[in-house]
Write a protein that binds this DNA or RNA. Structure first.
Length: 376
DNA sequence: TTGAATGATTTGTG
DNA sequence: CACAAATCATTCAA
């Protein structure tokens, strides 16, 4: 009886005095009691809420004093251990729910791409390998390549710089925030039960939040690189005239092999190397040149003579050098004249072949005849 | 702005 | 597959 009353009092805070208990059967409490209890609780909650709401109005000293008072309360250790126990029981379920998730495949993809593009990895001297390959395939003169290449590289390094600055900023902010939260939790752990594991959990939550921000950064960096690359590739698609030197080399070959202007695969490779263009560009050039030459030989007459003369001069120089050489070796040999090499001394079989019949313009026929006769 | 020049692409053929 | 021929697309000088 006494025990029950004590418990009831402790729970409800209401005295049982005046209640009659008969034959072990408790009579239902009068209606008025319920209402009185409810009002009391509401009053208590209201008080607590009021205290919470006005807590910010308190001065720091006042709050510190209250905290100190709480810490020094004689019941504090006992209450603290009870709270720890309760927390331990409820904490398990929370901990069970929190699992280490595997690395995000999307994040891995982004990381890989940034690494491949040379954004996240170590600084590469020549920019990304992709850029170098694209530049190599772009054709044109080496100077043009280097201009495009350096442009791409400059833009990429800009992106790289922004990426790293932002990443560092986020990391710093994350660390600062984590430290701040950890300190706060450690401080609070003196007045309320916070296990180190919970702090760890909180840290990992913060890290997850920040890594999601980092992912956004990585994503936008990837987008920027993609845009840059697409622009670069578009620029590559634009036609660029070959350099004067390259055209010179190709024309020299063409006119000195006018009888059979079909360079072998090896010759094409050689020319491509000399001109800093691709083999297929060499093929294109010869394809275009052959058809355009055949269509209008008259128009190319001047050019043909020019390159033939050039070839002749080169050959003459070679001969002169040889002669000079032989003279050095045998000074008694008389100084022979430079052997004259007739212009267009080759047989232009290619445009005299059957298919040239399709181009029976008088001009070309005359030109062909003239050439043939000059050869004869 | 225009037209020639020119590199690239497409289509057809042997 | 290499090539011819036609055509497209871009560059460049006047």
């Amino acid at each position: 009886m006494d025990e029950q009353a004590r418990i009831m009092q402790a729970l409800g805070g209401v005295s049982l005095a005046g209640h009659s208990v008969q034959g072990g059967m408790a009579l239902p409490p009068p209606h008025g009691h319920d209402g009185t209890d409810g009002d009391g609780r509401k009053q208590d909650i209201g008080d607590i809420l009021h205290q919470i709401m006005t807590i910010t109005d308190q001065s720091l000293d006042e709050a510190q004093a209250k905290k100190h008072g709480l810490n020094c309360h004689r019941m504090k250790p006992a209450l603290f251990s009870v709270l720890c126990e309760i927390k331990e029981k409820t904490g398990l379920s929370i901990r069970g729910a929190q699992e280490e998730d595997p690395p995000d495949p999307q994040l891995m993809r982004l990381d890989n791409m940034l690494l491949a593009e040379g954004v996240s990895g170590p600084e590469k001297g020549g920019g990304s390998a992709a850029a170098a390959a694209a530049a190599a395939a772009a054709g044109g003169s080496p100077a043009d390549n280097s201009i495009e290449h350096s442009d791409y590289r400059a833009k990429l390094s800009q992106i790289r710089q922004i990426y790293h600055t932002e990443l560092e900023k986020y990391e710093q902010a994350c660390n600062e925030f984590t430290t701040h939260v950890m300190n706060l939790l450690r401080e609070q752990s003196r007045t309320r039960p916070i296990s180190p594991k919970e702090i760890e959990r909180m840290v990992s939550i913060i890290h997850r939040k920040f890594s999601s921000i980092q992912m956004q950064l990585k994503q936008s960096t990837c987008e920027a690189v993609m845009i840059l690359r697409s622009r670069f590739l578009d620029a590559r698609r634009k036609r660029r005239n070959f350099s004067k030197q390259a055209t010179e080399i190709l024309n020299e070959y063409f006119y000195s092999h006018l009888s059979n202007p079909y360079p072998s695969e090896e010759a094409k490779e050689e020319l491509a190397k000399k001109c800093s263009i691709t083999v297929s560009q060499v093929s294109n050039w010869f394809g275009n040149k052959r058809i355009r030459y055949k269509k209008n030989i008259g128009k190319f007459q001047e050019e043909a003579n020019l390159y033939a003369a050039k070839t002749a001069v080169t050959a003459a120089h070679a001969v002169a050098a040889a002669v000079q050489n032989s003279q050095t070796n045998s000074p008694t040999t008389p100084n022979s004249a430079v052997i004259p090499i007739p212009i267009l001394s080759f047989l232009p079989c290619f445009f005299c072949s059957p298919f040239v019949a399709c181009f029976t313009s008088i001009t070309s026929s005359v030109a062909c005849d003239a050439r043939m006769s000059s050869h004869i």
